[in-house]
Design a protein around this nucleic acid. Structure first.
Lengths: 111, 111
DNA sequence: CAGTTAATTACTGTACTAGTTAAATAGTAC
DNA sequence: GTACTATTTAACTAGTACAGTAATTAACTG
């Protein structure tokens, strides 16, 4: 079972449909019905995907009459960005150096 | 089956052990054996986790004698950062506005 | 060579998820 | 009230992915 917050967040993001739903929600909140239309998926499946995003706290759902309005929680995406940014210096500064190291290792491998 | 690159990348990152392995590898390349020591996991499991990271192209493995040296591919993390950064403006500019919207919706819900 | 070390692969069981169908719940319109 | 709409939930099938451990391969040491 998934416990860690980042676990569920990354797991939720590992699906293209869910990433597309996030993309769509950056244009503003939408009902499940409204989110279903652009996709070649049943409303039940969209509802499930939304449920995964809600579980990962990436989306908030609020009832409005018979509709469920889905709203993006941008903080969740920020969490992902913050995680990656920690390694920014690493990929910016050490990239050239690393390439040299890897090539060196490959060379030695051939011996 | 996972096809999309981001799919495998995010899936690989959805596990705390693998994220810890990445963290460890920022200090420099290491063998599977060297990576096993700090963790309360068998070498087989570490080897598997490394394999998942290799599949997601986050880590490169090169043979050196009987050892497998693992090296981080920082570009993979950059991919994640790039994905999240697309929404940066969204969470920075619209956060306050969104909170108002959500609170408004909650208020209307109570009626 | 035998013995040890490093790492992978193979096997088993479990958990998660995609996708569908059907039923249930609740709001809206007439 | 009935009919319709929006959504959720349950029940199911099937496929995939993973954890954990056992068995195996390959390389080094003396």
């Amino acid at each position: 079972m998934v416990v860690d917050k980042l676990d569920t967040t990354f797991a939720a993001l590992s699906d293209p449909t869910r990433r597309a739903l996030i993309e769509r929600l950056t244009y503003g909140p939408a009902s499940v019905h409204g989110l279903t239309e652009p996709f070649a998926l049943s409303q039940q499946m969209i509802s499930k995907h939304i449920a995964y995003l809600v579980r990962a706290r990436i989306v908030i759902k609020t009832k409005r009459g018979r509709e469920s309005v889905c709203t993006l929680r941008p903080e969740a995406i920020k969490t992902v960005s913050d995680w990656a940014i920690r390694y920014r210096r690493f990929w910016e500064e050490r990239f050239d150096k690393l390439e040299v190291v890897v090539n060196q290792m490959k060379k030695e491998e051939k011996r």
